[in-house]
């Protein structure tokens, strides 16, 4: 298979299984969304693939097992954009984005001309070129999210993991970030895996979805199938109203408890339909 293949991946911390024998596929050229309630193990799954937490199970990229976690070889294949955007020193955006080239640098070697070009390209792609000399702590939330995205784009890894890349962003920035990820999937045939809480956004930008509950993958498939299934209400413990607005899927939680049938299925509410 061309892409990332995760087979029975488990993460244990003490007696707790944060991820329990999760298996999934994320293909090249596609955005794979990981959804599920808080504590389902979505972020832990991403951190395990990134090699940041110890795990068991096998990971293959294009059929080849991934190198051991925590090494530079793994870092050259997997780019990871964590949820928190902490920067401990007020470095400039350009310096921060340059850190994305670290896995590719030999010891004692400084950035080559090619590295600098990649950094500038990543800045341009995320519309951050104008911010290149600004200190990261002075940026607004949206600017910071773009700068962080530029940092992970500069790794040029075939796999890109992003944990809630659109959280706390205004609609325009959400669209901007997701558009960049879409382009990475389409034009560079990267494997993109994103954790998302906004199910409508997930329905719109993800090709495939993986639904997690209590550390397990309980459903995987095309976005509309996963979101249309009845176990979505059970997993989240809330009823959803599904529909289409201007031909775009919308999934929103409703306040009332699920009625007899327990939800599921899509109701078309196209503009002008009523």
């Amino acid at each position: 298979m061309s892409g990332l293949e995760i087979t029975s991946l488990s993460v244990r911390i003490g007696a707790r299984r944060l991820v329990d024998a999760a298996s999934l596929e994320a293909r090249r050229g596609m955005i794979t969304g990981v959804i599920g309630p808080n504590g389902a193990g979505k972020s832990t799954l991403l951190r395990a693939v990134a090699g940041v937490v110890p795990h068991t199970g096998t990971l293959r990229l294009d059929g080849v097992p991934l190198p051991r976690p925590g090494g530079r070889a793994r870092a050259r294949l997997i780019g990871y954009l964590p949820q928190d955007h902490g920067v401990h020193w007020p470095v400039s955006v350009r310096r921060m984005v340059e850190l994305g080239r670290l896995p590719h640098l030999g010891p004692w070697r400084s950035l080559s001309g090619a590295d600098t070009e990649i950094v500038e390209a990543a800045l341009a792609r995320t519309d951050s070129a104008g911010l290149a000399d600004a200190a990261v702590p002075t940026l607004s939330g949206g600017e910071r999210a773009r700068a962080m995205l530029a940092r992970v784009l500069a790794t040029r890894t075939p796999v890109l993991l992003a944990d809630e890349p659109a959280a706390a962003l205004d609609p325009a920035h959400q669209v901007g970030v997701m558009t960049v990820l879409r382009e990475e999937a389409d034009t560079n045939q990267r494997v993109i895996v994103v954790v998302l809480h906004d199910l409508s956004l997930a329905a719109r930008v993800c090709d495939r979805l993986v639904l997690m509950e209590a550390g397990r993958v309980i459903r995987a498939g095309a976005a509309e199938t996963v979101l249309g299934a009845t176990d979505l209400e059970r997993v989240y413990g809330v009823a959803f109203s599904r529909g289409h607005v201007d031909a775009m899927p919308v999934v929103t939680p409703v306040i009332r408890p699920p009625s007899g049938g327990g939800g599921g299925g899509w109701i078309d509410r196209d503009a002008g339909g009523a």
């Binding site: 940041v52 070889a73 990871y80 850190l99 670290l102």
Partner: peptide
């Protein structure tokens, strides 16, 4: 170089191969 990567926190530094 590892100290530079740590600017982004321990987890991100690790994901960069530190």
């Amino acid at each position: 170089r590892g100290l530079d990567a740590l600017t982004l926190g321990e987890e991100t530094a690790q994901s960069l191969g530190v």
